[in-house]
Amino acid sequence: MKLTFFTQQAEFMDILHVLGMPGLEAEQVSEQLTQALHAEFMVKGLDTLVAEQKDQFRNQLVKNFHNSAALVENLFVLLGAGRFTELVQASSEQFLNRVFAEVMPEADRGSTLLAGLRAKLQPVRLEWP
């Protein structure tokens, strides 16, 4: 499962394409935004932890400084699946709005065309197996 800020990644690429961005650059922008989303999600996750859990996580950070995967897994366990799912969905929705407000503001969208494409983008909805 990939965490993206909307389910229709191809539609987003279309928007960048319409704005004159070559395919490779569009992929880079998509990657930049995905990394930003992951960071925002992690911040939200940390904010959600109670003080004791935060300390636990930070201790893990000191011990497992070079083991990022373990840190992430630790956060996942601390949050729990339900909270994790809520946060993914909330982060996705908020981030999608931010992308259109900050990265692709109205002046550049410029037309009903891109507004129409924006309306088609949906935030992530997680469904566990």
Partner: peptide
């Protein structure tokens, strides 16, 4: 600048800001 150029710059700014926020949240 062309919209595509501005979008790339803004996306990078957003990425940098988000990573800095995460580093700060981790106390680093």
């Amino acid at each position: 600048p062309l919209p595509a150029t501005r979008i790339k710059e803004r996306a990078e700014r957003l990425r940098q800001a988000s990573l800095q926020k995460l580093a700060a949240a981790m106390g680093l």
